[in-house]
Amino acid sequence: MTEGVAINIADVSLDYPLNNKGIGLLREILTGRVKKNSTSLYRALEKISLNVKKGEVVGLMGANGSGKSTLLRVIAGIYAPDEGSVKVRGRVTLLAGIGTGFQLDLTGRENIMLTGSIYGYSRMEISNMEEEIIEFSGIGEFIDQPIRTYSAGMRARLGFAIVSNLEPDILLLDEVMSVGDTDFRQKSRNKIEQLIKGDATVVIVSHSKSIIKSMCDRVFAIEGGKIITDGSIETALEYYESLGK
């Protein structure tokens, strides 16, 4: 991998198995094989190649189901590509939707510890960051209450606070910049900008043109699992606007 490259995606394809029923399902379980090129596979990513430099901010735009989230999961190592290769340099964290798989019966503080250790941080490291995370999330005294008592906004804020304060080398954001109230949105934007200045590499999936325009160095449009633009912000936005028509 060349120096200065944080994410190297080369010819990556990925198939999702579709639900088989009855005998087909039984055969699939017993043999462990899904017939290639048949109706039982759905191609979610098709020969995607992308290089992201260290410290770069890349945006991904596209309609629902175009493969953006799948691509982030491949970068995060959650899915292994069926073809091609993904190389990633540094510690990756993915923030998608609300929370990071919180345990509802545990308190906010316990969930910080659990989430931190899931992302590979030691007890000491997490303890050092704990106060900062609580401060940033603005949860206040509720931090020692079980997560199930939190509102959706509070959960989203805590999730963002944990992942962004873990100071990852590579931060993958899936539709999370629009969580919380206006105040918190501004705060999370500042936090990301601060991370970018600190040399973090960021990949953002967003439907918000303003976020894409103001934060990204390059933007790609994705359709049907393929990258269809060359990275310039204007072309991607043009394509995205044409979707609505």
Partner: peptide, 11 residues
């Protein structure tokens, strides 16, 4: 049962 967590982080 841990699908939510598995889909968010690799270990």
């Amino acid at each position: 049962r841990n699908a939510a967590m598995i889909k968010k982080v690799y270990f």
